[in-house]
């Protein structure tokens, strides 16, 4: 059994290690020349972009502290396997742009440890319908889920703090459901990542001194998917992550396929004197930021709007769980 003490220890270890490793990750970024231009500033400047390494290392140490009392090797192995695979793919992309068609296929590999370890239950709960039995297709849905959620988290990491601010509310919603259902391990994992992201925000919020990079966003996406699958909270996660999933879906739909938004001929948002303004050309990709910046907005306000939307969708996920899923057999 995972005790409350183990969860508290994991949260503290995760937060402390992330704080300690953030300066190290910045140094590594600079030494390897892995910096990204903060493109939404009036005068763009380079920012170290491997801050996600600190989040990943801190969180993994915290996860292990949470799971140490579980004596469930497959659970811990699957978590390590999926998170490290996603982080490794993200790290690779931080140094070299991946083919946008190949990338989702690679990220789907992050779900393989979960499928191989068999730590899933192929009986997802659907609103109004209740528990279903998807023995054969569920493993395929797990792989697809990793690709969708990791890419969705990755696609919203466009502004200072946007990835962390929009990931914390869904994690807290998942933690709430895990607490109600007595699933201590996934509760602990959600809280450890929340703490680690909160520490990361101190350096990543506007004006950012470090970026999460693909290594950070794919790690966070993989952890959220793991929590959703292992905790049997798939629909709660989908609803809580609606802003991110919508953002990704509209980019894919408006670019007519799996293409990098960076390669779009028409940019979705134009920066004019530090103000973000939506490009209203029909060919521009439809993104969440484009919607928020339709009347011109500062980066800080746009991130606040994204955070408010994420809190709202997380509340909707709890409404879905408590009113349309709980008690439906």
């Amino acid at each position: 059994m995972t005790s409350l003490t183990a969860i508290a220890t994991g949260v503290l270890i995760g937060a402390a290690l992330t704080a300690a490793l953030l300066p190290v990750s910045k140094q590594i970024s600079r030494r390897l020349g892995c910096t990204g231009l903060d493109a939404h500033k009036e005068k763009p400047y380079p920012v170290p972009k491997l801050g996600g390494l600190a989040v990943a290392a801190g969180s993994i140490a915290g996860f292990m502290a949470v799971l140490q009392g579980q004596q469930n090797v497959p659970l811990a192995a699957a978590l390590l396997g999926c998170c490290l695979t996603a982080a490794a793919i993200g790290l690779l992309e931080d140094f070299r742009e991946l083919n946008p068609v190949l990338k989702p296929a690679l990220i789907a590999l992050a779900g393989v440890p979960v499928v191989v370890a068999g730590v899933y239950t192929p009986n997802p709960q659907i609103p109004f319908v209740g528990t279903t039995r998807l023995t054969i297709i569920y493993p395929l849905l797990v792989l697809a889920g990793f690709a969708v959620v990791c890419n969705a988290v990755n696609s919203i990491d466009v502004l200072n703090g946007s990835m962390a601010y929009t990931s914390i509310p869904p994690l807290l919603a998942l933690a709430t459901v895990a607490y109600v259902e007595g699933k201590a391990a996934v509760l602990g994992i959600s809280l450890v990542l929340t703490a680690s992201l909160a520490v990361f925000l101190t350096q990543n919020k506007y004006p950012a001194r470090v970026f999460a990079g693909n290594v950070g966003s794919l790690f966070v996406g993989a952890t959220i998917t793991y929590v959703a699958v292992v905790g049997r909270m798939e629909v709660v996660a989908i609803v809580a992550m609606m802003p991110q999933i919508m953002n990704e879906f509209h980019i894919i739909y408006s670019l007519r396929g799996l293409k990098s938004a960076k390669t779009a001929v028409v940019r979705p948002v134009i920066v004019e004197g530090g103000v973000l303004r939506a490009n209203l050309e029909k060919r521009a990709p439809l993104t969440l930021l484009r919607m928020f910046s339709v009347e011109g907005v500062s980066e800080k306000t746009a991130v606040n709007s994204m955070a408010v939307l994420s809190i709202y969708s997380s509340i909707l996920s709890l409404v879905t769980y408590f009113f349309f899923m709980r008690g439906v057999v």
Binding site: P243, M246, L288, F292, S305, V308, L309
Partner: peptide, 11 residues
Amino acid sequence: RITLYVIVLVT
């Protein structure tokens, strides 16, 4: 106002 409109869209 814009945030509220997007919230309605999400709903």
